[in-house]
Design a protein around this nucleic acid. Structure first.
Lengths: 210, 210, 210, 210
DNA sequence: TCGTAACCGAGACGGTACGTCTGGTCTTTTT
DNA sequence: AAAAAGACCAGACGTACCGTCTCGGTTACGA
């Protein structure tokens, strides 16, 4: 299913009048995505999108309520080839399978800028925050929650583990590097994060390597 | 050390000309901090600050190159009562001593908005990003790095621990909750993060491979 | 012909998009004219005009490139009730018919200030100078040139008269009093100027009345 | 006597304290004159003069009350080599002797701009207007008034001639060309103005050459 | 001789206005 | 009905000067 977009006008079962131009819709999303990933979040002005898409500003505002909503939609369209979650048999395998593609996406062009702009907007627009969390955050947390649940079923981890906290450690660390940029975001880093979370950092009673 | 501000005129040993008005400086920082923490990052317009501080825009621009630099400076001034790092004797104690005050600061009024706005700006202004990291990120990482180093000295954790990754797990998790707002940021959460990092999440009882 | 204004959008045969608001145009010109003639040329700040007209500055700048262009346009609108040139049958009558209304206009409120400000601006803005001359200077010179031409046809003055110089004597004297203000600008003065120009100041050999 | 300047501090008979720096005074006047005649009247900002003269703004304001006063003073200093009025024996000779040097001065670099700016300022500053007229206008009218008086004594022109109007015709025409710039200001023009004024433009009974 | 009054440089300060830009809305004509 | 065009209001942006002020340092008179 392609259209998870936010631009649906409520219900659209009534079919009166001129139908919506698919050409315009795609041009707008494409222009927005280009601007997002080339110039960064701050450059997605409605004027710029309208200009680049050959579309009038009013047309954009008819379907998207704000710049950020459009940016989110464009980004979702662009990311939509999401990896289907896999069951590798071990928690470590599952986590790496989930984390690595995300790390690779996040390393792209101006991804940090885009995410940062979305987060910033989410701080002051509750409506947008809800959409953002649902489409961006929860969508990635859910498969990882399932992986943890499977690990509990397998007896790999204690049943009283607070899964939410564990998720925050994994995604938090990755987001931290994306946003703060104090150190590079590598595959090796992703692996280190997973291993540190699984094993902890304290010495064990008996010799146990990382 | 009090004045870590960004508005210092280099060195100022030459004392020619009218001296800078401390009154104006404080009024500006206060006004900026108020606006930041009351309305959120996006409301710190230069006009608003100038108006509220009873100061001319030109005076602000003489000392701060941009809105964001001013916001950062105001925030640093506001946070300046930093807790001096303590040595509690255990890594767990040290981490909690560092993390808890930060969590409490971060829970305040519109802190998330402010941080988010600063991060967003740092994405596209390298000069600002450098200042932001130096004054905001590194300043908090350093005492925690020292805590980890002490733990290694004590033999509490393996000497080959990658401290940077450990830091990212702790601060990343906290920042994640600050910014994404998907779950509350409590003292209990801070403790869970520390314990999970220290002990890992895997069962300990029996022999366990990686 | 009413609209000699400078704010015409070239040709505008294409009628796409929202049409220009005549209400805004008139409000701007009225506000500018009021400020011009009440406070004098220097007080026509764009902010003041925008404020008084209840219009955004951007709207003004869309149609007028500069404060001075706007001032000129407002003044032309205000003066537009121009006297149609008359043929009185004698050069003296024609000149007086042309000069007297101009003298009366020029005696109004802060006319000198306004003209002086326009002239000052014309010195350093060639584009504005062209408009200024075309709409302000030439518009008044042309009917007087015609009057002189008719006088030559009638044999009233020599055919080799340099009309331009004669015009400069008449209008120069009037402008001089407007701008320098060293003596009052009266109807009597206008008549003296005309008579002096017509008869010269040297004694005539034999009796010749004024 | 060289110093007709406006910057005299009242009376200055008390000679206490540091005497005024002649070096600074000259640097300021020179800088102002340079800016006036190179860039035109509008560019004589106090900051620019202070900068170019290597002097503090406060020093300028201590001796000159405003930008325009300084500009006038600088210009007078620059023009000071005034031609002493001559008696050539005929009115025509006297007028040409007075008008020609003035025309040559006026043709220089940015003279029009400078005069226009002074006139514009004089419209709204009565104090400045008085100085301007005294030093600029009257200074040039007086010798011409004397020339006309001599012509009346000689019986060259009627005793009831209104000299002020005659002066306005001559100077008005020249100023008109300086300020409006609709036609060049040549020596020939000056001569035409004088001759037209002397002889009038109407046909005479008998042949009389220009 | 030496205090002191006036000067000078530097430059920060509160202001005003500039001209530009973007966001979001509104009003037409065209499809 | 929807799209395209584009005018509109609102208001922040960063800059340039204004004229005032507070300094510290420097003359050169006059007690």
């Amino acid at each position: 299913m392609k259209k998870t977009a936010l631009s649906e006008p409520a219900d659209t079962t009534s079919r009166r009048g001129r139908p919506r131009s698919e050409r315009a819709r795609l041009a707008i999303l494409q222009a927005a995505a280009d601007l997002l990933l080339d110039q960064g979040g701050g450059q997605v002005s409605m004027d710029a999108v309208a200009d680049r898409a050959g579309v009038s500003k009013a047309t954009i505002y008819r379907w998207w309520p704000s710049r950020e909503r459009l940016a989110l939609d464009a980004l979702l369209e662009w990311l939509s080839a999401g990896s289907p979650p896999r069951d590798t048999g071990t928690l470590r395998g599952d986590l790496l399978a989930l984390v690595r593609p995300w790390v690779r996406d996040a390393r792209r062009r101006q991804f940090g800028r885009v995410i940062a702009a979305l987060i910033a907007e989410a701080q002051s627009d509750p409506g947008f925050a809800a959409d953002y969390r649902r489409h961006f955050i929860e969508q990635r947390r859910e498969p990882m929650q399932a992986a943890f649940a499977r690990a509990i079923d397998r007896g790999e981890v204690p049943a009283d583990l607070d899964i939410e906290v564990a998720l925050d450690l994994v995604y938090g660390a990755i987001y931290h590097r994306i946003l703060q940029g104090h150190a590079p975001l590598t595959d090796r880093f992703a692996q280190q994060v997973v291993d540190l979370l699984l094993n902890g950092i304290l010495h064990r009673d008996r010799a146990r390597g990382t």
